[in-house]
């Protein structure tokens, strides 16, 4: 399939994820939406790598995946920690990480 269709899918997926980040208030949903955005970025990287006939985009997408794992580990740890302190994870109410 022509590469521009992949870029369009990637744009749409990134927009969906960004809507989730902006509109949801539950921290878990925000983290899930961030994962969607990272997936959209990887898709664009791979589509352009395919268009350029270059494999460096694959390596960068690999690094994005590792970064996503690190981000999920730290982000979910913070969510669990905030939940312990406040018994809720609404992002609107959280304004300090210090307890």
């Amino acid at each position: 399939m022509p590469g521009y269709l992949y870029i369009l899918v990637s744009l749409a997926l990134f927009f969906i994820g960004m809507t989730g980040v902006l509109l949801r208030r539950n921290a878990l949903f925000v983290l899930m939406s961030v994962e969607l955005q990272l997936g959209a970025g990887s898709l664009a990287l791979l589509a352009f790598a395919r268009g350029l006939g270059d494999q460096k985009g694959h390596v960068v997408a690999f690094f994005v995946m590792a970064l996503a794992a690190a981000e999920a580990a730290v982000g979910l740890a913070i969510v669990v920690s905030v939940y312990r302190a406040r018994k809720k994870i609404d992002l609107d109410g959280v304004n300090q990480l210090r307890n």
Binding site: L28, E35, S42, A49, V80
Partner: peptide, 28 residues
């Protein structure tokens, strides 16, 4: 990813995202 002939990344996507990261999310 697989239709873009990024086979390695496709397998990693299932292993890392749908496997490891989602387990983390489920526990959270």
């Amino acid at each position: 990813y697989a239709t873009l002939s990024a086979h390695f990344l496709a397998v990693l996507q299932v292993l890392v995202y749908a496997g490891a990261i989602m387990v983390l999310f489920i526990f959270a």
